[in-house]
Design a protein around this nucleic acid. Structure first.
Lengths: 357, 357
DNA sequence: GGAGGACTTGTTAGCGTTAACAGTCGATGG
DNA sequence: CCATCGACTGTTAACGCTAACAAGTCCTCC
């Protein structure tokens, strides 16, 4: 067939700067300069190089470039669970920043598993990412992995589920303040006996929300009997079980309102309340966290704290990029405010009923 | 304080195999062999090397390794919109495969923009990913980008929004069949005048669902007047507007049932129907696609086609890894079946009412 | 008219790793 | 006793790119 086609020594071989150089009769260095729009290249030469590059389908090898420049323009992201509605939003916020600043994202997910998270961290480091954004897994009990990475000079920024006091920047929602705000709102409705469905205190958000709840109660000199703080974890079933325990109390010792650690727990609790033949908010009022997409669609729409996931990701990414580029942020604790979304479950009769969704 | 701490010439410098070699008195090659568990290393030497590596905090540089081995163990993923509930699920399915097979994921999102997708593709190629998983953006009109990448030998697998006939493996839901199934179900309820709220026909799912709808109608010798196929796009507002157009028809010429291209469009349409003072399904029945988390929570729960997003991602990743590792799949069209989730909006009175959520 | 400068291009070396080949050393066997 | 083998380890040369310096050309200016 074709006799004199342009020779291709190894079909699997990629086109390199060498090939472009040979074709245009300049050195690889000039090709490099032209491709990177460096000054000091004659306009005509640059054009010649760029044309040849396009014709040959040449694209500079970032791997080689990364090796020599000691910079990969890549950021590692570790999330505990990609499908948790919070994280896609947060990733979107991260992506917006990194896209603008020319970084790429290596996404790993720890499946809430400490070992898997640890592996992810090590591999990201081996991949020589320029920095890491991480939201910790629930099963992590030991900071040393993070400390060591930081010790080795890897820029690390925590977001949402943060670890404070080990020298890494943390971006999170002011959970304590939000829990306080929500609790205060319930107190404002006149409720005095308020219970808390809590998350694991090992995780920062679990701790902070419990604290904020306690603070608000303390501020109003309201007591919190020990049986009013029930562990529910982060899921529907936990919320359901925890609420059942509260409902097992004699009626006069039951709470009149409940602050749930998040919306799924609140949904579980609501189910338990309705099953017990009680009404929301007439018998028991309830509030949650995270403005789950379902919150506004429940039979009794759920009052909840709306967490700016996009904003958290955005700020965390911004902080990380700044650190990487040599402008470390002033404070290493960035907390964002959250909004209270008032719906019927707390006793409000919102004019509009639904704020989003 | 400490006088004789181990010297660190350049604090920013990472620990290399060289350092480990020097410390243990062997050559870098032996370090490499020990780290990679190659044979031909004395057990005692290996231990010595591994110990020193741990002590120094050495982790092999994947960038350098990738350069010499011409393999990055990294897969590029391009999705049009990370927050579309379908994609986090799909990514989860991808992640499961890649985690098991030792690949990492570079995630890019095109924001439904052709140019941004094009950039992402080029950069991924420059980053020398071993393969690419892509779900196309809506605004793409030209295949050549994909063809060229394939021409350059980049393994490419499409998932969900696929491009057929250009030599890449495609993994998608059998949308035509699903649309047909849904339409058949409505016909089974006795509806004859059925309309379709359509997506962009440029996108494969838009085309396929329209076709499946048409096929089902043809099979039953039911006519589809031109005004019964209304463009809605993929969002609530589009569905709302499209439904308004159908409702603007004189009552006797209105549809009795509607097949929406996806759930958000269906939600918009439902809002329009209810606003017009009509009842669902009594006056107009409706069905959607994707089993959006809200579908079961609507005032009238929505009958919908449940798409196995996790499975799509999983199969696509599996196919790509196979291609990369030299076992190309037999067929280059992999279609997965979907399930019909029956709820009230189509006229069914499901015993259980809610299937998931 | 020759020193100096501006602009462009080339040369050399090295980023950290591994493949391929080349030793080294003790043991084995005819 | 020396060739041979096998187990281990070292040496060299890439992989594709860019920084740093060197060198060439042409021009300017005292």
């Amino acid at each position: 067939m074709k006799q004199k086609q342009s020779r291709q020594p190894d079909p699997a071989r990629r086109v390199t700067a060498q090939d472009v150089a040979k074709k245009t009769g300049v050195s690889v260095m000039t090709v490099s300069r032209a491709m990177n729009n460096r000054g000091n290249v004659d306009a005509a030469t640059r054009k010649k190089v760029l044309d040849a590059a396009r014709k040959l389908g040449y694209s500079p090898d970032h791997v080689a470039r990364s090796l020599v420049l000691r910079k990969t323009h890549t950021i590692g992201v570790v999330v505990p669970e990609i499908t948790h509605s919070f994280f896609p939003e947060a990733i979107r916020g991260i992506e917006e920043v990194t896209y603008r600043s020319g970084y790429h994202l290596i996404l790993t997910h720890s499946a809430e598993d400490a070992k898997r998270e640890h592996d992810a961290l090590r591999t990201l480091e081996s991949k020589r990412v320029d920095g890491i954004l991480i939201s910790t897994a629930q099963s992590v009990t030991d900071d040393s992995v993070y400390r060591e990475a930081i010790g080795r000079g890897v820029p690390l920024v925590f977001f949402d589920r943060v670890v404070r006091g080990i020298g890494a920047t943390c971006v999170s929602i002011d959970d304590k303040e939000s829990a306080r705000m929500l609790t205060n709102h319930l107190i404002g409705h006149g409720y005095r006996r308020i219970a808390h469905l809590s998350g694991p205190t090992r995780v920062s958000i679990g701790r902070a929300r419990l604290e904020g709840f306690r603070n608000a109660m303390d501020d109003h000199q309201l007591s919190v009997p020990p049986e009013f703080v029930v562990y529910s974890g982060f899921h529907e079933t936990g919320g359901y079980k925890a609420m059942r325990m509260l409902l097992a109390l004699p009626p006069e010792r039951r709470p009149r309102a409940v602050v749930a650690v998040n919306d799924p727990a609140a949904f579980g609790a609501m189910m338990a309340i309705l099953e017990a033949g009680l009404r929301i908010p007439d018998d028991i009022a309830i509030g949650g966290f995270s403005d789950d997409i379902r919150a506004s669609l429940m039979p009794i729409p759920l009052t909840t704290v709306c967490q700016p996931a996009y904003e958290v990701g955005n700020q965390a990414a911004q902080a990380l990029v700044n650190i990487i580029e040599g402008n470390p942020p002033q404070r290493d604790l960035i907390t964002l405010g959250a909004d209270l979304v008032l719906r019927r479950s707390c006793g409000c009769q919102p004019s509009e009923g639904i704020r989003r969704g």
